[in-house]
Simulated scan of single mutants.
Amino acid sequence: MSVEIIVRETKTGLEIVSGRRRLDALLALRDEVVVTSPGVGEVVIARLPDGRLQASANPEHIELFRQPETASGSKKSFA
């Protein structure tokens, strides 16, 4: 599945420019999604328990999210 979500960096963090409905649909299936945005690069976006969205362009967060889940290990979450 290919979904375009455009985010931009602001002084206070990252702001979703377009694709909010598509992002909401993806977050209904998973806790976190990785998107790629021109000028920003890869970003992990997570829905917090209170419903707010949090984004991170930190490579460590992206690497953590991309790790394959193991059957015996605990599920890690960015949120």
Rank of each mutant, 00 (worst) to 15 (best):
Phe78Gly: 00
Asp31Asn: 15
Leu29Arg: 14
Arg30Phe: 15
Arg22Val: 00
Val35His: 13
Lys75Phe: 12
Gln54Lys: 14
Ile62Met: 03
Asp31Leu: 04
Ser74Lys: 08
Ile16Trp: 04
Gly19Ile: 00
Pro38Cys: 09
Glu9Ser: 15
Gly39Thr: 07
Val33Ser: 04
Gly13Ile: 02
Ser37Phe: 04
Pro38Ser: 13
Leu14Ala: 08
Ile62Gly: 09
Gln54Leu: 09
Pro68Glu: 12
Ile62Trp: 08
Leu29Asn: 13
Val40Ile: 15
Gly51Thr: 06
Gln54Tyr: 14
Asp50Val: 00
Lys76Ala: 13
Asp24Gly: 10
Leu53Lys: 05
Ser77Ile: 02
Val43Lys: 06
Val7Trp: 07
Gly73Gln: 10
Leu29Ala: 14
Ala55Cys: 13
Ala71Arg: 11
Val34Leu: 02
Glu60Phe: 06
Lys75Ser: 15
Ser56Leu: 01
Arg66Tyr: 03
Ala57Gln: 12
Leu23Asp: 03
Lys75Pro: 04
Pro49Tyr: 11
Ala46Asp: 12
Pro68Leu: 01
Pro49Thr: 03
Leu27Val: 06
Val17Asn: 05
Gly13Gln: 09
Asp50Tyr: 08
Thr12Met: 02
Ser72Gln: 05
Lys75Leu: 11
Asn58Ala: 07
Pro59Val: 02
Val35Glu: 12
Val33Pro: 03
Gly13Asp: 11
Val44Cys: 10
Gly39Ile: 03
Pro68Arg: 01
Arg22Lys: 14
Leu48Gly: 00
Gly51Asn: 07
Val43Ser: 12
Glu15Asp: 14
Val34His: 04
Val43Ala: 10
Ile45His: 10
Val34Trp: 04
Leu26Val: 03
Val7Tyr: 06
Gly39Lys: 08
Ile16Pro: 04
Arg22Cys: 06
Val34Ile: 06
Arg66Pro: 01
Ala71Phe: 07
Leu27Trp: 13
His61Gln: 12
Thr36Leu: 03
Leu23Gly: 07
Arg47Thr: 07
Arg22Tyr: 11
